[in-house]
Protein backbone atom coordinates (compact mmCIF):
# COMPACT_ATOMS: atom_id res chain seq x y z
CA UNK A 1 0.00 0.00 0.00
CA UNK A 2 2.86 2.37 0.74
CA UNK A 3 6.20 2.51 -1.04
CA UNK A 4 8.77 5.08 -0.03
CA UNK A 5 11.80 5.45 -2.29
CA UNK A 6 14.78 7.67 -1.62
CA UNK A 7 12.73 10.12 0.42
CA UNK A 8 14.53 13.32 1.34
CA UNK A 9 13.14 16.20 3.36
CA UNK A 10 14.69 19.55 4.14
CA UNK A 11 13.51 22.32 6.38
CA UNK A 12 15.21 25.71 6.63
CA UNK A 13 18.01 24.27 4.51
CA UNK A 14 18.61 21.53 7.04
CA UNK A 15 18.39 18.06 5.59
CA UNK A 16 16.52 15.80 7.97
CA UNK A 17 15.48 12.79 5.89
CA UNK A 18 18.38 11.73 3.73
CA UNK A 19 17.16 9.06 1.36
CA UNK A 20 14.74 6.84 3.17
CA UNK A 21 13.32 3.60 1.74
CA UNK A 22 10.41 1.67 3.19
CA UNK A 23 7.60 -0.53 1.94
CA UNK A 24 4.47 -1.33 3.90
CA UNK A 25 2.01 -3.94 2.65
CA UNK A 26 -1.64 -4.22 3.68
CA UNK A 27 -2.05 -5.77 7.10
CA UNK A 28 1.57 -5.28 8.18
CA UNK A 29 2.77 -3.66 11.36
CA UNK A 30 6.08 -1.84 11.10
CA UNK A 31 7.94 -0.34 14.01
CA UNK A 32 10.49 2.44 13.71
CA UNK A 33 12.98 3.04 16.46
CA UNK A 34 15.79 5.53 16.52
CA UNK A 35 17.57 8.12 18.62
CA UNK A 36 16.15 11.57 19.39
CA UNK A 37 16.34 13.91 16.45
CA UNK A 38 16.89 11.16 13.88
CA UNK A 39 13.84 12.22 11.83
CA UNK A 40 11.01 9.96 12.99
CA UNK A 41 8.45 12.71 13.54
CA UNK A 42 9.61 14.40 10.35
CA UNK A 43 8.80 11.20 8.46
CA UNK A 44 5.30 11.11 9.99
CA UNK A 45 4.74 14.77 9.17
CA UNK A 46 5.89 14.39 5.57
CA UNK A 47 3.63 11.35 5.10
CA UNK A 48 0.68 13.32 6.49
CA UNK A 49 1.39 16.28 4.23
CA UNK A 50 2.58 18.92 6.66
CA UNK A 51 3.70 22.09 4.87
CA UNK A 52 7.12 23.67 5.17
CA UNK A 53 9.34 20.81 4.03
CA UNK A 54 11.20 20.61 0.75
CA UNK A 55 10.57 17.03 -0.22
CA UNK A 56 12.05 14.83 -2.94
CA UNK A 57 11.83 11.13 -3.77
CA UNK A 58 8.84 8.92 -4.51
CA UNK A 59 6.05 8.00 -2.17
CA UNK A 60 3.33 5.82 -3.66
CA UNK A 61 0.15 5.12 -1.70
CA UNK A 62 -2.31 2.74 -3.33
CA UNK A 63 -0.76 3.51 -6.74
CA UNK A 64 -1.08 7.26 -6.24
CA UNK A 65 1.64 9.83 -5.78
CA UNK A 66 1.08 10.62 -2.12
CA UNK A 67 3.22 13.74 -2.18
CA UNK A 68 0.78 15.47 -4.51
CA UNK A 69 -2.18 15.06 -2.19
CA UNK A 70 -3.41 17.73 0.19
CA UNK A 71 -3.31 17.07 3.91
CA UNK A 72 -7.05 16.43 4.15
CA UNK A 73 -7.09 14.26 1.01
CA UNK A 74 -4.58 11.95 2.64
CA UNK A 75 -6.85 11.75 5.67
CA UNK A 76 -9.82 11.01 3.41
CA UNK A 77 -7.84 8.21 1.80
CA UNK A 78 -7.10 6.56 5.11
CA UNK A 79 -3.87 8.00 6.45
CA UNK A 80 -3.95 8.80 10.13
CA UNK A 81 -1.22 10.30 12.29
CA UNK A 82 -1.41 10.01 16.05
CA UNK A 83 0.65 13.05 17.04
CA UNK A 84 3.63 12.83 19.35
CA UNK A 85 2.44 16.10 20.84
CA UNK A 86 -1.31 16.50 20.22
CA UNK A 87 -2.24 20.17 20.00
CA UNK A 88 -4.50 22.01 22.39
CA UNK A 89 -7.27 23.78 20.44
CA UNK A 90 -9.05 26.31 22.67
CA UNK A 91 -12.71 26.98 22.02
CA UNK A 92 -13.25 23.83 19.95
CA UNK A 93 -15.45 21.25 21.58
CA UNK A 94 -13.93 17.74 21.33
CA UNK A 95 -17.18 16.01 20.36
CA UNK A 96 -17.92 18.55 17.63
CA UNK A 97 -14.41 18.19 16.31
CA UNK A 98 -14.71 14.39 16.23
CA UNK A 99 -18.04 14.55 14.43
CA UNK A 100 -16.81 17.15 11.93
CA UNK A 101 -13.77 15.00 11.25
CA UNK A 102 -15.67 11.73 10.81
CA UNK A 103 -18.28 13.31 8.57
CA UNK A 104 -15.63 15.06 6.47
CA UNK A 105 -13.98 11.68 5.82
CA UNK A 106 -17.32 9.97 5.18
CA UNK A 107 -18.45 12.70 2.81
CA UNK A 108 -15.20 12.56 0.84
CA UNK A 109 -15.71 8.80 0.43
CA UNK A 110 -19.30 9.16 -0.70
CA UNK A 111 -20.63 7.59 2.49
CA UNK A 112 -23.62 8.75 4.47
CA UNK A 113 -22.75 11.26 7.19
CA UNK A 114 -23.77 10.45 10.75
CA UNK A 115 -26.40 12.51 12.51
CA UNK A 116 -25.92 13.65 16.10
CA UNK A 117 -27.54 10.57 17.61
CA UNK A 118 -25.71 8.02 15.47
CA UNK A 119 -22.47 9.80 16.18
CA UNK A 120 -23.04 9.87 19.93
CA UNK A 121 -23.72 6.15 19.93
CA UNK A 122 -20.53 5.43 18.04
CA UNK A 123 -18.42 7.67 20.23
CA UNK A 124 -19.86 6.16 23.42
CA UNK A 125 -18.96 2.69 22.24
CA UNK A 126 -15.44 3.60 21.13
CA UNK A 127 -14.74 5.59 24.29
CA UNK A 128 -15.86 2.77 26.53
CA UNK A 129 -13.69 0.28 24.62
CA UNK A 130 -10.72 2.53 25.36
CA UNK A 131 -11.91 3.13 28.94
CA UNK A 132 -11.87 6.80 28.05
CA UNK A 133 -14.04 8.98 30.27
CA UNK A 134 -16.54 10.41 27.81
CA UNK A 135 -17.11 13.49 29.96
CA UNK A 136 -13.74 14.63 28.72
CA UNK A 137 -15.19 14.77 25.21
CA UNK A 138 -17.48 17.64 26.10
CA UNK A 139 -14.42 19.73 26.93
CA UNK A 140 -12.32 21.85 24.58
CA UNK A 141 -10.07 19.77 22.37
CA UNK A 142 -7.03 18.60 24.38
CA UNK A 143 -7.16 21.75 26.51
CA UNK A 144 -6.09 20.82 30.00
CA UNK A 145 -6.03 17.12 29.12
CA UNK A 146 -3.33 15.17 30.94
CA UNK A 147 -0.49 13.82 28.80
CA UNK A 148 -2.02 10.36 28.80
CA UNK A 149 -5.52 11.67 28.05
CA UNK A 150 -4.19 13.45 24.99
CA UNK A 151 -2.63 10.24 23.73
CA UNK A 152 -5.79 8.27 24.39
CA UNK A 153 -7.76 10.92 22.54
CA UNK A 154 -5.52 10.32 19.51
CA UNK A 155 -6.28 6.62 19.64
CA UNK A 156 -9.98 7.33 20.04
CA UNK A 157 -9.84 9.43 16.87
CA UNK A 158 -8.03 6.60 15.14
CA UNK A 159 -10.63 4.07 16.11
CA UNK A 160 -13.48 6.37 15.04
CA UNK A 161 -11.94 7.18 11.66
CA UNK A 162 -10.92 3.58 10.99
CA UNK A 163 -7.90 4.43 8.80
CA UNK A 164 -5.97 2.20 6.43
CA UNK A 165 -2.53 3.39 7.46
CA UNK A 166 -2.07 4.50 11.06
CA UNK A 167 1.14 6.21 12.06
CA UNK A 168 1.58 6.27 15.82
CA UNK A 169 4.29 8.71 16.80
CA UNK A 170 5.38 7.76 20.31
CA UNK A 171 1.83 7.15 21.38
CA UNK A 172 3.18 5.00 24.21
CA UNK A 173 5.22 7.81 25.80
CA UNK A 174 3.24 9.20 28.68
CA UNK A 175 0.79 6.32 28.97
CA UNK A 176 0.56 4.43 32.25
CA UNK A 177 0.83 0.65 32.22
CA UNK A 178 -2.93 0.07 32.16
CA UNK A 179 -3.44 2.64 29.43
CA UNK A 180 -0.61 1.12 27.40
CA UNK A 181 -2.39 -2.22 27.61
CA UNK A 182 -5.73 -0.72 26.59
CA UNK A 183 -4.25 1.23 23.68
CA UNK A 184 -2.36 -1.87 22.50
CA UNK A 185 -5.55 -3.93 22.70
CA UNK A 186 -7.22 -1.24 20.63
CA UNK A 187 -4.52 -1.39 17.97
CA UNK A 188 -4.51 -5.20 17.97
CA UNK A 189 -8.29 -5.26 17.63
CA UNK A 190 -8.14 -3.06 14.56
CA UNK A 191 -5.34 -5.10 12.94
CA UNK A 192 -6.72 -6.66 9.81
CA UNK A 193 -5.76 -7.70 6.32
CA UNK A 194 -6.46 -4.17 5.11
CA UNK A 195 -5.11 -1.91 7.81
CA UNK A 196 -1.45 -1.28 8.38
CA UNK A 197 0.49 0.44 11.14
CA UNK A 198 3.69 2.39 11.38
CA UNK A 199 4.59 2.55 15.04
CA UNK A 200 7.28 4.92 16.25
CA UNK A 201 8.55 4.16 19.71
CA UNK A 202 11.54 4.33 21.96
CA UNK A 203 10.46 1.38 24.05
CA UNK A 204 10.56 -2.31 23.40
CA UNK A 205 7.73 -2.73 25.93
CA UNK A 206 5.07 -1.51 23.49
CA UNK A 207 6.28 -4.02 20.94
CA UNK A 208 5.64 -6.82 23.40
CA UNK A 209 1.97 -5.85 23.32
CA UNK A 210 1.77 -5.03 19.63
CA UNK A 211 3.95 -7.55 17.90
CA UNK A 212 5.41 -5.89 14.78
CA UNK A 213 6.15 -7.74 11.56
CA UNK A 214 9.18 -5.55 10.95
CA UNK A 215 11.41 -3.31 13.02
CA UNK A 216 13.46 -0.56 11.39
CA UNK A 217 16.19 1.55 12.86
CA UNK A 218 16.21 5.17 11.73
CA UNK A 219 19.43 7.02 12.34
CA UNK A 220 20.33 10.40 10.91
CA UNK A 221 17.57 10.45 8.32
CA UNK A 222 18.06 6.95 6.95
CA UNK A 223 16.92 3.45 7.78
CA UNK A 224 20.16 1.75 8.66
CA UNK A 225 18.85 -1.63 9.69
CA UNK A 226 15.65 -3.64 9.37
CA UNK A 227 14.68 -6.93 10.93
CA UNK A 228 11.95 -8.83 12.71
CA UNK A 229 10.61 -8.14 16.17
CA UNK A 230 13.78 -9.57 17.74
CA UNK A 231 15.65 -6.46 16.55
CA UNK A 232 13.78 -4.39 19.12
CA UNK A 233 15.12 -6.55 21.94
CA UNK A 234 18.62 -6.35 20.54
CA UNK A 235 18.40 -2.54 20.47
CA UNK A 236 17.09 -2.47 24.00
CA UNK A 237 20.19 -4.35 25.14
CA UNK A 238 22.90 -2.79 22.98
CA UNK A 239 21.59 0.70 22.18
CA UNK A 240 22.08 2.51 18.86
CA UNK A 241 25.83 3.04 19.28
CA UNK A 242 26.77 -0.24 17.64
CA UNK A 243 24.75 0.65 14.55
CA UNK A 244 25.97 4.13 13.77
Amino acid sequence: MLQIKDLKAKIDNKEILKGLNLEIKPGEVHAIMGPNGSGKSTLSNVLSGKKGYTVSGDVTYFNENLLELEIEERAHKGIFLAFQYPLEIPGVNTNIFLKTSLNAVKKANGEKELDAIEFLKLVKKKASELKFDENILSRQLNVGFSGGEKKKNEILQMSILNPKLSILDETDSGLDIDALKIVSDGVNASRSKESSFLIITHYQRLLEYIKPDFVHVLINGQIVKSGGSELALELENKGYESLS
Binding site: N45, E72, A75, L87, I89, S101, A104, L161
Partner: peptide, 25 residues
Protein backbone atom coordinates in the same frame (compact mmCIF):
# COMPACT_ATOMS: atom_id res chain seq x y z
CA UNK B 1 -0.26 26.69 11.39
CA UNK B 2 0.37 23.58 13.48
CA UNK B 3 -3.21 23.67 14.70
CA UNK B 4 -4.44 23.92 11.09
CA UNK B 5 -2.26 20.93 10.20
CA UNK B 6 -3.67 18.98 13.14
CA UNK B 7 -7.28 19.62 12.10
CA UNK B 8 -6.64 19.00 8.40
CA UNK B 9 -4.89 15.74 9.19
CA UNK B 10 -8.28 14.66 10.54
CA UNK B 11 -9.95 15.31 7.20
CA UNK B 12 -11.17 18.88 7.69
CA UNK B 13 -10.62 21.25 4.78
CA UNK B 14 -8.39 24.27 5.21
CA UNK B 15 -11.48 26.48 5.30
CA UNK B 16 -13.26 24.30 7.87
CA UNK B 17 -10.16 24.19 10.05
CA UNK B 18 -9.78 27.95 9.99
CA UNK B 19 -13.45 28.48 10.79
CA UNK B 20 -13.23 26.13 13.77
CA UNK B 21 -10.14 27.90 15.05
CA UNK B 22 -11.60 31.37 14.54
CA UNK B 23 -14.85 30.47 16.25
CA UNK B 24 -12.82 28.86 19.01
CA UNK B 25 -10.89 32.10 19.36
Amino acid sequence: EDAIFYLMSRGLSNQQSKELLINGF
